[in-house]
Write a protein that binds this DNA or RNA. Structure first.
Lengths: 222, 222
DNA sequence: TCTTGTGTTATTGTATACAATTATACGATT
DNA sequence: AATCGTATAATTGTATACAATAACACAAGA
C-alpha cells in the first residue's frame, strides 16, 4: 500500500531491485511456504550479494505485505488467509468496476485491439485446454484494463491486488471450465467498452470479479 | 500498497522505523517541498544515525509513493497532483462506502460510543471555530469507521489514502464551514450505522467523500 | 524430571569503508 | 563566447565489521 500508491519499484537492474523481484516471485510461486523464515545471509549467498541489498529488499517486501519482519528476530513469509482473499475480492470488485467505467472513456484504439485479440486467443486456448496460456491471457486482459483507465493510482492499486492473489488465481484457472467462463465475461466487458457503455462495463466487471471469487470458494482452493 | 496490503510498519522503536515515520511526517507536513532532494547523510546527521537505516527508510517511502528514488542519483519528494487527489477521492468514495456498510454489521458497542462522542464534540468545536480540534476529530471519525469494518486489508487501504491526502484535508477543514457540514454528514452516517441500515450507510459515506472532494475543488486548495 | 540459569551461537541492527556513478568546475579548443 | 573534455568532488550502491539481541544447549539445583 502499502502502500505504495504511485511509483513502480524503480530499479530492475540494481542488486536490491533484482533481489526484491526474485524473492517476491519466489513467495508468490510458492518456493517459500507460509511462515517460513527468510535469512539474510542465506538469501544473499544464494543470489551472490551481501546482506545490504537483501535487507533493503526485505523492507520493501514487508510494506507489500509479503513478509513480516519481527525486529531482532527475523523475516517470515506471510500467509494469505481465507478472509484476506475474501476482502481483496470484495474491494477488487468495486475498483475493477470503476476501472472498467473509466476505461470506457479513456481506452486507446491499440489497447482495445489488444483486448480483442486477447479474448479471441483465450477462447482458442480455453477450448484446447491450454491452461497455462489461458492463465497468462487472463492476467494480461486485466492488465490492459488497468492501464486503460488512465489513472496511475487506480492502476497501481489493482495491479497490487491482482498480484497478491496470484497463487489462488493460478489454481483456479488451471481447474474446471472457469477459464472459458471467465473469458466469456471478458468478451462481454469488452463489448460494453467498445459500445462506450460505461455503466454496463462497470456492472459487468463488478460481477466478473464476484464470480471469480465464487468459483474460488466453490473449488475450495482456499 | 503496494502495495502495502497487510502489515503495519512494524517497528516504532528501531532506528529505521523512527527515521521512516519522521521523514514521512516531514513530507506530509510540508517540511520538504515537492521535488526536493533528500540526501542520506544529511538526514542521517539530522537524526543522529548512519546512512543504513536512512536508506532502508527511503526504500519504504518509495513504495509508499512519497519519494521517488532515481538509481545512483537521489531521492526526490514526489508531489501530489490534482489528478492524484481526484483519483484518490474517487476510489475512497467507493471504499469508504463499502467500509461503512461492513461497519454496520461489525461495529462494536465501544466504537459506536466513541463515534457518538466524536460527533457531539465536533459539533461543539465546529461552532466555536476550533479548526484544529475539528480537524483531529474528523480524522478520528474516519479512523474509527475504518477499524470498525473488521477488514484489516480495507482498513489499511483507507488509512493509506487518508494519510496521503492529509495536506489537502488540513487546508480544507481549517477553511470555510466545511467542518460543520462534514460533521453533520458524519452524524447521518452514524445514525444509519446505529440503525443497522447498511445500504444507507454505504450511500451516505459515498456521498460524504464526494462532497469533501467537491469542497476541495471549490476552495481551490489544489 | 522439570525448571532455571548461564554461556555459546546464530541472527539481526547499525556503522563504516570502499566502489561505482553522477554532478560540477574549469580550462582547452574552436 | 560557446562547447567539449577531463579532473575533482559529491552522492549513492554495496560489502563488511562490529554491536545488540534472541535462540539454543546444557548443566546445576530442586
Amino acid at each position: 500500500m502499502e502502500n505504495s500508491v504511485k511509483n513502480e519499484v524503480t530499479d530492475k537492474y540494481s542488486l536490491r531491485g533484482r533481489v526484491f523481484n526474485r524473492i517476491r516471485e519466489d513467495i508468490l510461486n510458492g518456493k517459500y511456504s507460509e511462515n517460513e523464515e527468510l535469512r539474510e545471509v542465506a538469501i544473499g549467498e544464494e543470489l551472490g550479494v551481501s546482506r545490504t541489498p537483501v535487507r533493503e529488499a526485505f523492507r520493501q517486501l514487508e510494506l507489500e505485505g509479503l513478509i513480516q519482519i519481527i525486529p531482532n528476530k527475523g523475516a517470515y513469509v506471510t500467509g494469505i488467509t481465507k478472509k484476506d482473499v475474501h476482502d481483496i475480492y470484495m474491494i477488487r470488485s468495486l475498483l475493477e468496476g470503476l476501472c472498467a467505467r473509466l476505461a470506457t472513456e479513456h481506452i486507446t484504439k491499440e489497447a482495445l485491439e489488444e483486448m480483442e485479440e486477447n479474448v479471441y486467443l483465450a477462447k482458442f486456448h480455453g477450448e484446447k485446454g491450454h491452461y497455462e496460456q489461458v492463465y497468462e491471457l487472463d492476467n494480461r486482459f486485466h492488465e490492459i484494463l488497468y492501464e486503460a483507465c488512465d489513472s496511475k493510482i487506480l492502476e497501481h492499486q489493482l495491479k497490487d491486488f491482482h498480484q497478491y492473489v496470484l497463487r489462488v488465481r493460478k489454481k483456479t484457472l488451471s481447474n474446471s471450465g472457469r477459464g472459458l467462463k471467465s473469458n466469456e465475461e471478458h468478451a462481454k466487458i469488452l463489448e460494453a467498452i467498445r459500445n462506450k457503455d460505461g455503466e454496463l462495463a462497470e456492472r459487468l466487471a463488478n460481477e466478473h470479479i464476484k464470480k471469480a471469487y465464487e468459483n474460488i470458494v466453490k473449488i475450495g482452493v482456499i
